[in-house]
Design a protein around this nucleic acid. Structure first.
Length: 222
DNA sequence: GCGACAG
DNA sequence: ATCTTGTCGC
């Protein structure tokens, strides 16, 4: 069986290596990463899209499918998703300077969400962009677009709750590694183009889910 | 003991 | 995450 106790200790130890200062100024390439499951969860599918900044034109995208070997356990999500993420990463011909990951960065009980774990494995700056809260608390947000509140946990800020679009649930943004809280929010804002999700994550999600709209767009770019 | 709980 | 059509609201 899985030794959750040991894995949590591992997270706490690796979290000490996380750097929350900026390691870059302006990225040339920004990637979006998303993970999903198929065949009733037996197959893990990861997608990555690399976009050029500031045009946000798609440079390349890939999908990797591997057998799932770890269950979903709140707080231990990265152990379930990182193998597939490393698999897609290998397919990239252009390595990005920054990756926006679907999930939490340091907004995690032990400050080690999937975005942080991936960043440490790849040694690339990442930002965690989650659609739901895992931990932490915050003041209520107004309905206004751009409305933002710090996400705190145990007297420390671990991220931001940001309303990227009107009448939409807010995003939970937190640095993964090698980027600060402020810069994380800044780049997410810069990549919001009228939709709830920032372009990198939005495209990674769309390409992975194989939706009609995205398939048409891919053809237009081919 | 009772909730909360990324994807 | 995933299973799934139409439908209510701006």
């Amino acid at each position: 069986m899985i030794d959750t106790k040991l894995l949590r200790q591992e997270q706490a130890i690796k979290a000490k290596q996380i750097i929350l200062t900026d390691n870059f100024v302006i990225p040339n390439l920004i990637a979006g990463a998303d993970v999903g499951f198929e065949e009733k969860g037996s197959v893990t599918r990861a997608a990555m899209v690399v976009m050029r900044w500031p045009s946000l034109a798609i440079v390349e995208y890939h999908i990797a499918r591997i057998p799932t070997e770890f269950p979903y356990i709140p707080g231990l999500l990265s152990f379930r998703e990182y193998p597939a993420l490393l698999a897609v990463w290998e397919k990239l011909q252009h390595k990005p300077d920054l990756i926006m990951v679907d999930g939490q960065g340091i907004a995690h009980p032990r400050r080690f969400g999937v975005a942080s774990h991936l960043a440490l494995l790849l040694d690339i700056p990442t930002i965690g962009i989650a659609k739901k809260r895992l931990c932490g608390h915050h003041e209520a947000l107004d309905e206004t677009v751009e409305s933002c509140q710090p996400l705190n946990d145990n007297n420390e800020q671990i991220g931001w709750v940001f309303r990227s679009k009107k009448r939409c649930k807010p995003l939970y943004i937190s640095p993964g590694h090698k980027i600060s809280l402020d810069t994380s929010l800044l780049w997410v804002k810069r990549c919001i183009k009228g939709y709830r999700l920032p372009e990198p994550t939005r495209w990674a999600d769309g390409i992975a889910s194989n939706r009609a709209f995205f398939n048409r767009m891919k053809q237009n770019l081919a």
